[in-house]
Write a protein that binds this DNA or RNA. Structure first.
Lengths: 307, 307
DNA sequence: GTGTGGTCACAAGGTAGCCTTGTGCCCCAT
DNA sequence: ATGGGGCACAAGGCTACCTTGTGACCACAC
């Protein structure tokens, strides 16, 4: 939970823009507010933080050391916010006149926003018009349908193989990892390792039948007798919460649990002799290469950042 | 720059808490506001986003598909905000009764907040009291002084070697990378590679003399005749901005430019035959191991995440 | 059937924060 | 000397948010 001393996004953004432009006035102009509003907002933030962030001179404002640190930390927050913005914009677009992209949930949640931001930044850099996207997030099977039927011009799917009947290109690999809550017995082992047989015999927290995540694990464990799940949930977030609370082990995408593992909310367990990697493919119809233009550019961005 | 449809941090936090608790009421209680305020804040956010985020039932609220996506994107924003919070809290602490940590700028900006969050999360998990920190961010030389004089109980420094006279432990490696703006001629080469001699002969954007970043590069290029810098700036942020604007190449910490490289604001250039890695060390006085308690725990966290 | 607890929505009222307009001052460059 | 850029202070208005109070609905227990 967030403390009460954290400024809101707009305040952080103001600070970063001031750092870039060198003055409150120009930052205010860039953000479309008056200089006085910017000045006031900045003073509010300084009171919140409890330290001066700018050293104001007659010819602009420079950052203090504290301001310098806060700018760096803010940049990371704002980068994430920019990805959120890109994703949201793609969700919201009117369906006409835009590139329609369909993506599996994992890709839409963890990778696509970054690709959209990178592509936009690249288009701006090269002076190209910025593409607007329509995003549909659904399961891999439905993504393939949408691309085949023309509902989407480009799709991103996950799974052991690319779907048949569509052109495709490998854009990355998402490894599935097994996680447990920090209090789980497996997390107390120094090795943090179990055998595939042990995992297969343990009731797990799983996504609903048909989800790509679940399919990959069941296929990898197909030589072992199946065990009924302890809990079946319809969203990745719910699975993460249940596992963190100690419900049992689960297999989730490495991207999906990266932050939780880093902060200790989840603990990663190695499983001996189990291949849980799944491939991420871009798919489209019509030719060996994606249609020229934004679709091809987006695939190129994804390939460049997928590794 | 952020669009006008991005909710503020408090609204994103509400959504994530609702996703975890399953109801608006309990989320409101956890955040210390009334149920009505939470309901209203949520409706405001739904209007902003332009789509329903919750499906409200008589026994709680579940996420819609859009809500599910937004929760994932928000989590990343909030994780970054939590690191900002941890860093800010460490900066703000009263100087008595807390663990005093001094860190070089690079470490304080890019790594330490994550360590603080991880340590706090670990302490909460194990039921230990949560340590409060005092953070001083300065250059490596001064960090070593502070630890030697007892001003700080623990320090983190960067440089080719650990300072003499202090106990130390390697906690990670930060590679220095050479970057140019996206329009720079080097960025147009398909190889994106130059020789060390070319780099040495090119006027660069540099930090002020004495900074760890500058020292590492000059030492690596010591066999080549020195070239006066095109621009000398006192902060990493200023160097990044100058390089992005096309002022010339610069060498910066890989952590510092990771986001910029990912979004295309900066382009990374390989330099043949140049070792630009620098080691990150924890330093303390008194014994072979850091003093037991939070200092030792923090070093352990840093070692665990440094690789 | 009825009470109880839990959920969410609607309405009214107050407060506080934020933004704009207007103004003054200072310094530097021309 | 003068204009322009930059920041702060003050006043006023509006908006957004939060709280209190209320109602409706549903599940479950008795």
């Amino acid at each position: 939970m967030l403390g009460s001393h954290v400024p809101e996004l707009r305040a952080l953004e103001l600070l970063v823009v001031v750092a870039r432009t060198g003055s409150l006035s120009s930052a205010a102009a860039e953000l479309g507010i008056t200089q006085q509003a910017a000045s006031s907002r900045m003073r509010t933030m300084e009171a919140l933080v409890g330290a001066p962030l700018l050293s104001r001179t007659r010819r602009g404002s420079a950052l203090t050391e504290t301001g310098e640190l806060l700018v760096q930390w803010s940049s990371r927050v704002l980068d994430a916010a920019e990805q959120l913005d890109a994703g949201l914009t793609a969700l919201r677009q009117d369906r006409r006149g835009h590139l329609a992209v369909a993506a599996s949930l994992t890709i839409a949640e963890y990778l696509l926003p970054g690709w959209l931001v990178a592509l936009r930044s690249q288009q701006e850099r090269l002076g190209q018009p910025v593409t607007e996207f329509t995003l549909t997030a659904t399961n891999s099977e439905r993504v393939a349908q949408m691309v085949a039927s023309g509902e989407a011009a480009l799709g991103f799917v996950e799974g052991p193989e690319a779907p048949e009947g569509l052109s495709h290109r490998l854009v990355g690999v998402d490894e599935l990892v097994v996680v447990v809550g920090p209090h789980h017995p497996w997390a107390q082992r120094s090795s943090r390792r179990v055998s595939a047989a042990t995992l297969a015999a343990t009731p797990r927290v799983v996504r609903e039948a048909g989800s790509g995540t679940r399919t990959v694990l069941e296929r990898a464990l197909r030589d072992h007798p199946p065990t009924p799940p302890v809990l079946e949930l319809t969203s990745t977030a719910a699975v993460r919460a249940a596992v963190a609370a100690g419900a049992g082990p689960a297999a989730l995408g490495a991207h999906a649990v990266r932050d939780d593992v880093a902060t200790g909310r989840l603990v990663r367990i190695s499983v001996s002799g189990l291949d849980l990697s799944r491939r991420l493919h871009a798919v489209w119809t019509g030719g060996a290469h994606p249609p020229a233009g934004p679709a091809r550019d987006l695939v190129a961005v994804a390939v460049g950042r997928g590794r």
